[in-house]
Design a protein around this nucleic acid. Structure first.
Lengths: 206, 206
DNA sequence: CCTACCGATCGGTAGG
DNA sequence: CCTACCGATCGGTAGG
């Protein structure tokens, strides 16, 4: 990174978009209108520049998608890998609680790119690669659930695979409604998700 | 309906698609490739007929979407209305359990059209109308949760709105992975969802 | 970062 | 007489 460009207000060259800003704003538009329904011309209009200006920063519309999906996947992989690695030292039950909590935090922190990721259906090679990385994450989470059930820490009347899908289905559903400017605090949300997932919504028996 | 056309094999005219079959098959393609990413030409190729044949059955691509969304919304509204109406006779807690269970059953029964519905983002007047009907359903469900909390039947340390969103987020996530030809039975699935939502995944205390 | 374009494909409709 | 379709093409717009 060149001197003086790392942060703050000093920049050389024409003021405007850098690639990171372009990706961030593009993801917002993709989420609002749908990736396929958004033409590069639409994108240019919404961002106040021309199609060619966009092609100055990225070689294709799909590369824009790829950068956004990598942002989401990288963050998710970090927290899931960490939870899986701590599993031998800690109980799988505790690692699973950590994984759920950290997943909520990543979803909130990287909401736009994770939202885009969760809407990918595999319509191109890039989307298929992203789905493959997602599948690997899902398998690691299912493994944690299996271990926690094997420890005797979780109920065994529902299969670990089904538990994993339903719990992380609940977590991922955050992207459907959570807004950073809303009235739901991240910590409150993460507590609620972990508590609902593990304790359910019936009254505490105690 | 004319004599002899109601069911069975006797039909007049050329054998082929009727509107209902067209909608059903189109929804499968829309879910696989995405509504916006599917051209009427794509659709025609996959269905083994021509674009003009499709326009014989429906006036527009959007009308095809509209028919599918109505199919999903009608079914969802039936079960939610029923749960809300039984609420005075029964406890809100019991009505909510019923609503969750019946919602799972509708999602499985109408999986393709509900999947399409849950992916709608409001890119057209028809999509906005569908989102409005969804919002009304969500409000009725949130009302049931509020009543159940007010009855003292549900925990009150998480807001009813958040409970509603997370529980039905879990329910709706079924569309991401459930397949009718898979190894998860509907009754088993409905039991698992209701039990996980109300009791959580920790070991039963008893 | 723009103007000026391309090969192709879009949703929709004609007559038969 | 109807339902179910076909081959060809319309005016516009897509990503690049």
């Amino acid at each position: 990174m060149g001197a003086g460009t790392s942060e703050g207000t000093t920049r050389r060259g024409r003021p405007g978009y850098d690639q990171e800003t372009l990706v961030r704003r593009a993801v917002e538009v993709f989420n609002r209108r749908g990736y396929d329904a958004t033409s590069v011309g639409d994108l240019a209009s919404e961002l106040g520049l021309t199609k060619s200006a966009i092609y100055h920063h990225v070689p294709s519309k799909e590369h824009l998608l790829s950068l956004a999906l990598d942002d989401a996947l990288d963050s998710l992989e970090v927290v899931i890998d960490a939870a899986v690695r701590e599993s031998p030292a800690m109980s799988a039950y505790e690692s699973l609680r950590t994984a759920v909590r950290r997943s909520v935090e990543v979803l909130v922190d990287k909401l736009p790119s994770v939202t885009l990721l969760l809407r990918v259906r595999g319509n191109s090679a890039i989307e298929l690669q992203a789905l493959e990385r997602r599948r690997h994450i899902d398998e690691q989470l299912a493994g944690l659930v299996r271990s926690a059930v094997a420890e005797g820490a979780l109920r065994d009347d529902v299969s670990p695979e089904l538990i994993s899908r339903l719990v992380f289905g609940m977590v991922n559903s955050l992207t459907e409604w959570y807004r950073a400017d809303g009235d739901v605090d991240v910590a409150v949300l993460a507590d609620a998700v972990v508590s609902l997932a593990f304790d359910g919504l019936a009254l505490p028996q105690a």
